[in-house]
Design a protein around this nucleic acid. Structure first.
Lengths: 107, 107
DNA sequence: AGAATACATTGCAAATAGACGATATATTAA
DNA sequence: TTAATATATCGTCTATTTGCAATGTATTCT
């Protein structure tokens, strides 16, 4: 049995975090792109824009737009390396998101 | 150190679950309505449409529409009781959602 | 310098979402 | 039976999203 703590209550800021991240994950293709970037990161393979474009049946413009949403939510970070934009998943943001969402079920 | 299991891989069906639930949680007001219903349930107070309308600064039509999205995602269930529609949070769906989303970080 | 590559951004069309007032339908109260 | 209440849905308007081709802006290669 878990004691209820003050920190269990969902604060406004966390609600906005949930809304932003949920919005980013609200499209199947973005979920798959995010997972793709995660997997590449885990395997220590870098991912650039073209890699994502090759992996999914959408135009370069559409892929860039989807990635932008993931970046805006903080789920993905972009680092310019040479002539490439390399994408990295930010695990911390996902963890914060999961923690906040878990609170629904704990207070 | 956690071993990687076959079940760690995100399946298509889970991706659609994540997309649907994320879509439902992609709006701050829906997050708050969901939390409100959860809290009432926990305190063993029933929640009807009017209760939600009174709790938030939106029209009855708009509230019903938001609740419908939560229902479509499976996060909320509606039971007709006497002349009221009573809302109940389905914790199981949230748990499944959290489990699926956690897999991002475990394979 | 000029051509090629990488990728973000813009502009467009179609679809969807968000808010509302009004309406339809069902249940309950008088 | 009529009136009132509860709530889902429709129609409308506006804003946002999704997809694309085209364009802009660097950077790199020849």
């Amino acid at each position: 049995m878990r004691l209820r703590k003050e920190s269990d209550d969902l604060q406004e800021e966390e609600i906005l975090l949930i809304a932003r991240v949920s919005d980013a994950l609200a499209h199947p293709v973005r979920i798959k792109i995010y997972r793709y970037i995660m997997t590449c990161n885990r395997e220590r393979t870098t991912v650039c824009n073209k890699d994502v474009v090759n992996a999914f049946p959408y135009s370069q413009a559409t892929i860039s737009q989807h990635i932008k949403k993931l970046v805006t939510a903080g789920l993905v970070e972009v680092k310019k390396e040479e002539k490439f934009s390399k994408y990295y998943a930010n695990i911390g943001v996902l963890m914060k998101y999961l923690d906040a969402t878990k609170k629904f079920n704990s207070n």
